[in-house]
Amino acid sequence: MATVSEIKYVKKDDTRDPMFPALFEIKGFKRETKDTFTVEMIPKENSGKFVFQPGQFNMIYVFGVGEIPISISGNPDDTSLLVHTTRVVGNVTNAMSKLRRGDILGIRGPYGNSWPLDEAIGKDVVLVAGGIGLAPLRPALYKIVDEREKYNKVVLLYGTRTPADVLFRRELEQWRARFDLEVYVTVDRAMSGWKGNVGVVTTLISRSPFDPHNTIAYVCGPEIMMKFTATELQKRGVNDDRIFISLERNMKCGVGYCGHCQFGPFFVCKDGPIFKYSQVKDLIIKWEV
């Protein structure tokens, strides 16, 4: 037979065809804000467990409509429930937002890399979330809180559009009530009743209580916001190889061989979606990469 060169098959999953989804049943649906919702689901097969690392995503298939990548937003320690939080931005998310308990979704994943929590051990951890960016960061925060003693100061900076767009309000308040977490929330604009901060999330960075020389930062949100945040963090003294961002590109296969998610030499689906800022800082400032 023809030789298939010296290819090393470093396959992640031996049994499943990567394009063949697993069926999940929706157990809970919650509207978080006017354009954002959360879906909770359980696997219909396979011993009922789903294991993932914070920062990873799934390719979610809605019958007849299509498939899109969405970050997992649940607790990694709860393997019986798969949680996704997403905004309605197109056909598939729109169709998803109309599903309810008992409906079925096709799930392929988890794909991608994860927030490097072991690099943060013994350091201050700053999580900066913008808008829906809080969703992919939430699993990291769950894990950090669960193993709180491994990290020094933990700071969450969260910026969103208006007070009505604040996600996971109850959880934010619970986290803020802890003595070992600092949580700062800001909005881009507010009506007079809001007693919290108003201003972009970058303005929170200069006065946040962390030691820039011993800090790991995880940043997630719209690309512009991540760039501004990274700049502000560097101004404060955090090195660009200690700042991690989560990128987003068009994905069709999610597993590295359809070519769509390329960002320069990187495949966002398999080299990312989480990147060290030093890796991508030259590309991210260029047009139409």
């Binding site: 559009r161 970058t202 303005t203 949100g221 719209p222 690309e223 916001m225």
Partner: peptide, 14 residues
């Protein structure tokens, strides 16, 4: 900071 606010990055355009 105002420019970033102006861009309304959390809005539908992004």
């Amino acid at each position: 900071a105002t420019r970033l606010q102006l861009m309304d990055v959390y809005g539908n355009r992004f």
